[in-house]
Design a protein around this nucleic acid. Structure first.
Length: 610
DNA sequence: GCCGTTTTCGGCCCGACTGTTTTCAGTCG
C-alpha cells in the first residue's frame, strides 16, 4: 500500500529545499494544529495539521518546485486544504486561510500549550470563561484565585499549573547528546551489574541519535515482576543521583548532578522488547506500527503485540502485562518480524519513510563505525590541537584506522594559531617523516584551509598543490545572506584542490544558526565537481545535520565523516557523526573515508585533473 | 483534515496517570 508513495519519495528526494521555507511552513502548520486543539475542533484535524508540519520538517524535497509542478498533493499527508495553504504561502508569502483561522484565537494562548500539565481543553476554558488570553493573564488569575470554580479544576490542578509555569520558566533547555550519552551509558552499565537485572538499555530520543534530548529514558528487564522494587531501590541510590523525583515498584525518576532527568522503567523480561520499542519511539513511528498491527488484526502496546481476539478477552490491570499470550514481546526484532517487517534500527525510527522502505524490502544497509578506515580532519599542536603528530597517529592506529589526515588551520585563523605558508611547508615534511617511521598507518598531509568571506581560499593553489588532501571550511562571517553564503561555498567547491567542505554551515547546536545555504545549488556543484561534504562529528557542530546529509547523498554527493579532533580523545567522537549518518540513511559507499587509501588518492587525483 | 485492493463516508493508536469524579475528562509520551 505504500509502494507508490515510496517510489515518489525517491524521485522527489533528489531536489533539495532552501531550509527557511520549509521551516516557516512547519511552524505555520504547528500553529494551525494548536489552534484546532484550542478551538476544540475534531482532534484528528489537529493531528492532520501537525502531521503536515512534521512531513515538511523532515523532507528533502523542494517545496517551491513541488508547488510549481503541481506535485504537492502527491506527498502523503498533504490534502487539499494544506495544499492550498502551502501554495498561497509559496506564491504570496502568506496564507489568507491561515490568517483567518489564526485571528479566531488570541495568539498568546498558543504559547500556553507549552506549559506542562496545561492542555488545550483547559486553556480554552480559561479563555472563554475567565477571559485569559496570555501567560500574564494566567499568572494573574492564579494569584487572584480566579481559576477556582471552573469545572474540573480543583486546588491540585491549579497547583499543577503553577508548577508547570515555574518549570517552564526555569526549564533547562534540551541537553546535548554529548553530555547525556556518557551518563546514560554509565547508568545502564550499573543496572546491568545488579544481580536481578536481565537486560538494560537506554531508549528515547537519545537512542534514536537526536542531537539534543529532553530527558533520558532507561528500560530494564527483570525475571519477575516482584523484583521491580529492589531495582528501583538500588537505582535511586546510584552515585550519579542528585535528587529523586519519584520511586515506585515499576518506575523511578531521578535528576543527576548536571540537571539531567532520567526515567527508569522496570518490566518482566518477556515484555522487554515491547517496552524498549515503545519508549524508543518516535511517537510517529510507533503510531504507524500500531496501524500495521491493526491491519493484521493485532494490537501493539508497551507490553507486547497481541491478537485482537485474545487481547479483548484478556484481563488487564494497570501497571502489569495483560493476561494474554503475546504474538511477540521479548525483543524488538520479534515484534517487527511478527508485523512482517525487518528490524529497523533506532536511528531510522522517525517516520521518514523507513516503514514504507521496510515493507518494500528497501531499507538501506546503514554505515557502521567499523566501516570507517581513517579520519580526514584532525588537528595537532602545530595549530590549536593538543597532541603531536605522532600521538594523534598512535591514537588513530589504536582505533584500527589505515590512514589519518592531519589538517591544521591556515594562516587567517590567527586565534587558532593557523600555519603560515612557511610553517605549513615544514609541517608537511614533518607529517611525511612521521608517516614513514610508523608501521600500520599512513599519514596524509592536509590543511583545514579557511574559506574567506568571498569564497577565496586562505592559501594559493600553488601551496594547496603541495598537500595530499584539502579540507576547506568557513570559520568567520557566518551571518551572510543566502546568496553570499552560497556563492562563497560554491567558489570553494570549484577549486580543484579542495576535496571536502568541512562543517559546511558552521552552525553550533543551540548557539549559532550557521550559513543559510541554498543546498540545492551546493549539492549540485559538489556532485558535479567531485567534492565531498563533511559530517563533522564534533559536538556541538554535527554539521551537516541528518536532513542535509540525506539530501546530499540523494543528490549524488559524496560525504566524509570526520571528527575535527583537537586531541587524541577527540577521535572517538566519530560515533556521533556515525549516528548523524545513520539518521541520514547513509551507507558505507556514500562515504569517502570508508574507502581504501588507494581509492581515496585516486579520487583526489581525479579532481586535480592530473 | 486526510485517506481508501472490502470504504468517497466513517473511521483515524494506545495505555497510564491524575484529578475530579461516582464513571470520566484531560494530559502526556
Amino acid at each position: 500500500m505504500y509502494q507508490e508513495k515510496t517510489n515518489f519519495f525517491h524521485q522527489i528526494i533528489r531536489i533539495i529545499p532552501p531550509m527557511s521555507l520549509n521551516e516557516d511552513l512547519e511552524k505555520l502548520f504547528q500553529t494551525l494544529a494548536a489552534i484546532m486543539d484550542i478551538r476544540g475542533e475534531n482532534t484528528f484535524k489537529a493531528i492532520a495539521f501537525s502531521k503536515v508540519a512534521r512531513v515538511l520538517s523532515s523532507t528533502t524535497a523542494d517545496i517551491r518546485e513541488l508547488v510549481e509542478t503541481d506535485r504537492l498533493k502527491e506527498i502523503e499527508g498533504i490534502g487539499p486544504s494544506s495544499q492550498k495553504i502551502i501554495e498561497d504561502y509559496v506564491k504570496t508569502g502568506k496564507s489568507s486561510d491561515f490568517e483567518e483561522v489564526a485571528a479566531s484565537v488570541p495568539p498568546g494562548l498558543i504559547l500556553l500549550l507549552g506549559i506542562p500539565g496545561l492542555g488545550p481543553k483547559t486553556i480554552a476554558q480559561c479563555w472563554k470563561e475567565r477571559n485569559i488570553t496570555c501567560l500574564e493573564d494566567l499568572v494573574k488569575a492564579i494569584e487572584q484565585g480566579k481559576l477556582a470554580g471552573l469545572k474540573g479544576i480543583g486546588e491540585k490542578k491549579i497547583e499543577t499549573i503553577k508548577q508547570g509555569i515555574a518549570m517552564r520558566e526555569s526549564a533547562g533547555q534540551r541537553i546535548g547528546i554529548v553530555l547525556a550519552t556518557p551518563v546514560a551509558k554509565g547508568l545502564v552499565q550499573r543496572l546491568r551489574e545488579l544481580p536481578l537485572v536481565r537486560a538494560a538499555e537506554f531508549a528515547g530520543s537519545l537512542r534514536r541519535g537526536k542531537e539534543t534530548i529532553g530527558d533520558v529514558d532507561l528500560v530494564c528487564a527483570v525475571k519477575k515482576e516482584s523484583d521491580g522494587p529492589k531495582i528501583s531501590e538500588a537505582f535511586v541510590k546510584f552515585p550519579e543521583v542528585q535528587r529523586v523525583l519519584g520511586q515506585g515498584t515499576t518506575k523511578a525518576s531521578i535528576v543527576t548532578e548536571r540537571g539531567l532527568q532520567v526515567d527508569l522503567r522496570i518490566v518482566p523480561e518477556e515484555n522487554f522488547g515491547a517496552t524498549l520499542l515503545y519508549f524508543t519511539g518516535s511517537k510517529d513511528h510507533n503510531v504507524k506500527l500500531r496501524g500495521i498491527a491493526l491491519d493484521k488484526e493485532m494490537t501493539l502496546n508497551e507490553w507486547g503485540l497481541y491478537r485482537l481476539s485474545e487481547y479483548d478477552k484478556a484481563e488487564k490491570k494497570s501497571g502489569a502485562a495483560p493476561a494474554a499470550r503475546p504474538v511477540a514481546s521479548k525483543t524488538e526484532k520479534e515484534i517487527y518480524a511478527a508485523l512482517g517487517l525487518p528490524y529497523i534500527v533506532s536511528e531510522l525510527r522517525e517516520d521518514r519513510g523507513e516503514i514504507e522502505a521496510a515493507e518494500a524490502g528497501k531499507l538501506p544497509k546503514l554505515i557502521e563505525q567499523s566501516d570507517i578506515r581513517g579520519d580526514l580532519h584532525t588537528h595537532t599542536n602545530a595549530s590549536d590541537g593538543q597532541g603531536t603528530i605522532e600521538e594523534m597517529a598512535q591514537a588513530a592506529l589504536a582505533l584500527g584506522y589505515e590512514y589519518l589526515c592531519i589538517t591544521d588551520h591556515s594562516k587567517s585563523s590567527v586565534i587558532a594559531n593557523g600555519l603560515s605558508v612557511e610553517r605549513l611547508l615544514k609541517h608537511i615534511q614533518e607529517i611525511h617523516r612521521v608517516s614513514d617511521k610508523l608501521k600500520g598507518i599512513t599519514l596524509l598531509a592536509g590543511s583545514e584551509v579557511d574559506i574567506l568571506v568571498d569564497g577565496r581560499l586562505d592559501f594559493e593553489d600553488a601551496i594547496l598543490k603541495e598537500l595530499d588532501f584539502v579540507v576547506a571550511s568557513p570559520h568567520v562571517s557566518l551571518k551572510q545572506d543566502a546568496q553570499k553564503a552560497t556563492d562563497r561555498i560554491l567558489r570553494a567547491i570549484e577549486n580543484r584542490y579542495v576535496n571536502v567542505i568541512g562543517h559546511p554551515t558552521g552552525r553550533l547546536i543551540q548557539k549559532r544558526e550557521g550559513l543559510p545555504l541554498n543546498f540545492s545549488a551546493v549539492y549540485k556543484a559538489a556532485a558535479q565537481s567531485g567534492t565531498a561534504l563533511e559530517i563533522n562529528s564534533s559536538y556541538p557542530r554535527l554539521d551537516l545535520n541528518d536532513i542535509q546529509a540525506r539530501g546530499a547523498i540523494a543528490a549524488g554527493v559524496a560525504l566524509t565523516i570526520d571528527t575535527d579532533a583537537h586531541n587524541t580523545e577527540g577521535l572517538a567522537d566519530i560515533s556521533y557523526g556515525i549516528q548523524v549518518a545513520k539518521r541520514a540513511w547513509v551507507t558505507a559507499k556514500d562515504v569517502m573515508n570508508t574507502r581504501s587509501l588507494a581509492e581515496l588518492k585516486k579520487w583526489v587525483k581525479k579532481k586535480r585533473g592530473n
